[in-house]
Design a protein around this nucleic acid. Sequence first.
DNA 1: TTTGTATTTAACCAAATGGTTAAACTATAT
DNA 2: ATATAGTTTAACCATTTGGTTAAATACAAA
Lengths: 206, 206
Amino acid sequence: MDNTLVSDQSTEQRILEAARRVFVVKGFAGARMQEIADAAGINKALLHYYFRSKEKLFEQIFREAFGRLLPGLAEIFSRPLPFFRKIELFTETYISLVIEQPYLPVFVLSEMHRNPDDFFQKHIQPEMLASIRQIGRQFAEAAQEGLIRPIDPRQLMLNIMSLCVFPFVGRPMLQRMMQVNDTEYQQLMEARRQSVSAFIIQAIQP
Amino acid sequence: MDNTLVSDQSTEQRILEAARRVFVVKGFAGARMQEIADAAGINKALLHYYFRSKEKLFEQIFREAFGRLLPGLAEIFSRPLPFFRKIELFTETYISLVIEQPYLPVFVLSEMHRNPDDFFQKHIQPEMLASIRQIGRQFAEAAQEGLIRPIDPRQLMLNIMSLCVFPFVGRPMLQRMMQVNDTEYQQLMEARRQSVSAFIIQAIQP
DNA sequence: TTTGTATTTAACCAAATGGTTAAACTATAT
DNA sequence: ATATAGTTTAACCATTTGGTTAAATACAAA
């Protein structure tokens, strides 16, 4: 009565993985249900048997992807740590996260780009915004206390996000522009874990 | 016999503008010829009368967009200027460029993401790569001469690119996360022209 | 007026695509 | 052995979409 556990999980996972790959590369509009089915090693009928529609499948994948992206990061800035240590921890954690799941930022960003408000209303909880504002306040305080060189906290936030995220979002372009192969680029991303926080701290320390 | 000049130009331009808007938001796959025709205030028949196919139309727009993005920037680094001044000039020029044409990076990046190699082979001339390598060498030299703090030149290049480009690519997400309205965000981008170069120089000066 | 280009209208086509359905087969649990 | 869930096959449908075509119209130049 319950072979569903093993079989369901493995097939469902195969589908989800396949869908993720296809959606990430082709986008929602460019993705084909047939291609997803092929990539999962099943057929279209079974695909719709598990996930009723393309939208449903996409939503599920998107929710998973996005859920993994933010929680835990905002939390870092609420810990009782020295300011610079927080920045170190944040960038290192973020970059590590994205190294393991490099598809996340592109996916979220491009979907966000298609219909921003719809997306935002659906997936962003007010708590997230609250913790982001809280981080902004910490930046402002640090500047006022002279702990860091005076800088618009929003610019600082943009800078940190940019340095962490963009090398992953722009990888296809950057990698070819800089003419490095896959393993070299991966090594660069590894090195960024240290490099970025050092760069930021150097830039803002008085 | 030649009313083509006035009429062609204005209609063709209307089409190109409309297509740009649609392609940028929806991507190639998501864009609909009908929607482009509507946005241009004409009908599908006329659309195909001017540009034979969707691919042709897309290619033309893409070529235009991409052509505006790089030339002139690499050139800055070949001028006989102090190193820090080059960085200032580069970031300011780049950010100014993208403020005027904010759709460019998203467009290029997302298309690049769809089929990187095809894209690259088509639109990147070897001269571009040469001048990029040349910039990399300048970074390396500056580090060796002790002009700047020791840093992997590729990381520095990634950092500069990230700081300049990402706030535009990720705008829909960043703007909502930071809860700033359109005019405020534009002001932030204006301010970045100064802010970013200062940030970078502060980070790398010994 | 004639001629040729720009433009519209409207119908049409073929292919792709998301989605459905029914029947059959497999394997497993009870 | 029987029921049940997973899976395949294969046909099918409605809609969308890129693209075409032919006829009519507007319009400016010659």
